[in-house]
Simulated assay, not measured.
Amino acid sequence: MKQLVLFSLGLLFSLSVSSQILKPVKWSYAAKKTGKKTAVLYLKATIEDGWHLYSQNMADGGPIKTSFSFSPAKNYQITGKTTEPKATVKFEKSFNMNVSYFEKSVIFQQQVTLTEAGTHPAVKGSVEFMVCNDQQCLPPETVEFSVPVK
Rank of each mutant, 00 (worst) to 15 (best):
L4D: 12
L4Q: 11
L6V: 09
L6D: 11
L9K: 12
L9C: 15
L9Q: 13
L11E: 07
L12H: 10
F13M: 13
F13T: 14
S14W: 11
S14C: 09
S16K: 05
V17T: 14
V17M: 14
S18L: 15
S18G: 15
K23Y: 10
K23L: 10
V25I: 09
K26S: 14
K26W: 09
W27Y: 05
S28N: 06
S28G: 04
Y29P: 04
A31Q: 06
K32R: 03
K32T: 08
K33D: 00
K33E: 00
K33C: 00
T34N: 00
T34V: 06
T34S: 08
K36L: 03
K37A: 06
T38S: 06
T38A: 01
T38G: 01
A39Y: 02
A39W: 03
V40I: 10
L41V: 07
L41C: 04
Y42D: 05
Y42N: 06
L43K: 02
A45F: 02
T46L: 08
E48F: 06
G50S: 03
Y54T: 09
S55D: 11
Q56R: 15
N57V: 15
M58N: 13
A59V: 14
A59Q: 13
G61F: 02
G62T: 08
G62I: 10
K65L: 14
K65V: 12
S67G: 15
F68W: 13
F68L: 09
S69G: 15
S69R: 14
F70P: 05
P72M: 09
A73K: 03
K74P: 07
Y76C: 00
G80D: 08
G80S: 11
K81S: 11
K81N: 11
K81L: 12
T83H: 02
P85S: 03
P85W: 00
A87E: 07
F91D: 03
S94G: 10
N96R: 13
N96I: 12
N96Q: 08
M97P: 12
N98D: 14
S100T: 04
Y101W: 06
F102L: 05
F102Q: 08
E103I: 09
K104S: 11
K104D: 13
S105Y: 07
S105F: 07
F108R: 06
F108S: 03
Q110K: 07
Q111H: 10
Q111F: 05
V112A: 05
V112S: 00
T113W: 02
L114R: 03
T115V: 03
A117M: 03
G118F: 04
G118H: 02
T119L: 01
T119V: 02
T119E: 04
H120N: 09
P121K: 00
P121Q: 00
P121G: 03
K124A: 10
K124W: 08
G125N: 05
S126F: 02
S126D: 07
S126C: 02
E128A: 15
E128Y: 11
F129T: 05
M130E: 15
N133C: 07
D134W: 06
Q135M: 12
Q136V: 06
C137P: 09
C137D: 08
L138Y: 02
L138A: 03
P140K: 05
E141F: 10
T142V: 11
V143W: 08
V143M: 04
E144A: 15
S146I: 07
S146H: 06
V147Y: 01
P148K: 02
P148F: 01
K150L: 06
